Computed example of a mutant assay.
Amino acid sequence: MKAALRKIFSPLLTPLEASEEPYHYKPLSRKILLFFGAVFTFLGLLAAWLIPEGADPGYYFPVVVFTLAGLYGLIVGALGEDRAVARIWGNK
């Protein structure tokens, strides 16, 4: 299952895993990335739920930004290799 999901999300994961530069990975980094991915996704969905009916379309900008950032963190944290997680945090 993980291999199939990695193949689906390869356009997101490949740029983070492509380099041959040395990196410094800490297992806690993955846990923090998953936690913040979940928090950002929750905040995006909460903001979508709180938008009043018939509101200005500008209200949806934070919803899109928070939800996409959270989902990106969850995808990299759950499916990415150690190098991808280290690159998200900027560890070299």
Rank of each mutant, 00 (worst) to 15 (best):
M1E: 14
M1R: 14
K2F: 15
A3D: 15
A3M: 12
A4D: 15
A4C: 10
L5P: 05
L5M: 14
R6C: 14
K7T: 12
K7D: 12
I8P: 02
F9R: 06
F9V: 05
F9W: 12
F9C: 07
F9A: 09
F9M: 06
S10T: 08
S10P: 02
S10A: 15
P11Y: 05
P11M: 04
L12F: 15
L13I: 06
L13N: 05
T14K: 15
P15G: 07
S19C: 08
S19Q: 12
E20H: 13
E21Q: 13
P22T: 11
Y23F: 15
L28T: 11
S29N: 13
S29Q: 13
S29W: 04
S29K: 03
K31Y: 11
I32P: 01
I32M: 09
I32H: 04
L34F: 02
F35W: 08
F35C: 08
F35K: 03
F35Q: 04
F36A: 00
F36H: 10
F36N: 04
G37L: 01
G37R: 02
G37F: 01
V39D: 02
V39Y: 07
F40D: 00
F40L: 09
T41L: 09
F42S: 01
F42L: 10
L43Y: 01
L43D: 00
G44A: 00
G44H: 00
G44Y: 00
G44E: 00
L45V: 02
L45A: 03
L46A: 12
W49C: 01
L50E: 09
L50F: 03
L50P: 00
P57V: 11
P57F: 12
P57K: 08
P57I: 11
G58A: 11
Y59C: 07
Y59R: 08
Y60A: 04
Y60V: 01
Y60K: 03
F61A: 12
F61Y: 12
P62F: 07
P62C: 06
V63L: 09
F66S: 05
F66C: 05
F66K: 03
F66H: 05
T67V: 03
L68T: 12
L68Y: 07
A69N: 09
A69I: 06
G70W: 03
Y72P: 00
Y72D: 01
Y72L: 07
G73I: 01
I75F: 07
I75R: 04
V76R: 04
G77P: 02
A78D: 07
A78V: 06
A78G: 13
L79F: 09
G80L: 05
G80K: 04
G80T: 05
E81C: 06
E81S: 14
R83Q: 11
R83L: 10
A84W: 09
A84L: 08
A84H: 10
V85D: 11
A86T: 08
A86V: 06
R87F: 09
R87I: 03
I88T: 07
W89A: 13
W89M: 09
G90E: 10
N91A: 15
N91M: 14
K92Y: 14
